[in-house]
Design a protein around this nucleic acid. Structure first.
Lengths: 197, 197
DNA sequence: GGATATAACTAAGCATTGCTAACTTTGCAA
DNA sequence: TTGCAAAGTTAGCAATGCTTAGTTATATCC
């Protein structure tokens, strides 16, 4: 019998890390809190001290995801010049994120998604949205009749739709000529900036 | 003790109906096969004769959803004239569907979504996509450089993204001026037909 | 019309899972 | 040093998906 580990150090972070590792290995998996605990080497109910419910853990995971998404979209779009390039970079960052972390992306949008119950989650989500919104405003892409916010929303919906379809293996030759991220990003960017030309 | 019901008549359809009812009552519910069986009044393992696994049931449910989505988009877009009106009607039908059956919509796209394992599901999904694709081709909306298929895909992604965000309560004043379906549909239609003006 | 095969169902039971309750250990602070 | 809160533990419950083995109704064949 192993000696119990009464103070792990940072079980909370360890749980989130283990969950992410599990999601990377099997993007479609149903995370099991007990399995995560076993993986780490603590008892099945140890997580309860840090996450009262599984939904709480998923929400924390989603917050992490949105923060990383924000960082990556900012990083990738920083070194661009020109409208269309800028938006292509934003779209590409978004699509790459959903491709690199499909399991996490699922959690962010599909599973633990009760935003009203997790204000922190809504805050993180809005923060990542603002990257897009700022770009729209910076280039004054919106026409007078539909303002910047509406165009930003449409842009978000467009890339989010693409990302969702992509991560669900729905993008096939019957649906899009190319399944490559840069091509899809270019299509999105052209559509968003169409009024600019 | 009640007398066992050995032949229900059409347990398969009854299960799907009960599942839909449950989803209408609680769109975010995790369907339980056992609970559905209990609701109908058969034993917990009776469904197994019709659906070998829960995933099979969800897939069948999703097929139903895609067929209904297709019917409703066709019906609503039939009585329109003009490009923008046509696409607004298509988008509106799509958004209304996701609003009317949010639980079913979740199943269709988020949960039982292993398309590769269910060819029937892929077929139904493609059939509903073709409604959009046909409209794009009919109005020759695509520019030479990106052909009709790519524009159709973008259109699908756009409305699907809007529908997803809508059904997850992510459409708030911080994200879009209006949360009303007709307004969102108009925004989508304008974007898709922008090259046409 | 009666045997019989098969589809449709029941009953029992197992493993996993989320969660709660009650208890124990550890570290910090008065 | 003592006491207390945080962070673990064990035990156990209820729900769920799935399997196995047995039972009953329906349909088909002769």
């Amino acid at each position: 019998m192993e000696k119990p580990v009464y103070h792990h150090g940072d079980l909370r972070a360890a749980l989130l890390d283990a969950a992410e590792a599990e999601l990377l290995a099997d993007p479609r998996c149903t995370l099991s809190v007990r399995a995560l605990a076993a993986e780490i080497g603590v008892s099945a109910t140890a997580p309860h001290a840090h996450f009262k419910t599984k939904a709480d853990l998923l929400a924390a995971l989603a917050v992490r995801g949105f923060e990383r998404l924000r960082d990556e979209t900012i990083a990738r779009s920083a070194r661009t010049s020109g409208v269309e390039q800028r938006f292509a970079a934003l779209a590409e960052a978004y699509l790459r994120f959903s491709e690199a972390y499909p399991g996490l992306y699922r959690i962010m949008f599909l599973i633990g998604a009760d935003f009203n119950a997790y204000p922190e989650l809504r805050r993180a989500s809005l923060a990542s949205f603002h990257v897009l919104e700022d770009a729209i405003r910076e280039y004054e892409l919106a026409a007078p009749q539909d303002d910047a916010l509406d165009l930003a929303f449409a842009a978000w919906a467009l890339v989010h739709g693409m990302a969702s379809l992509l991560s669900d293996d729905r993008v096939t030759p019957e649906v899009a000529r190319s399944q490559e991220v840069p091509d899809l990003a270019r299509i999105a960017a052209r559509l968003i900036t169409s009024r600019h030309r």
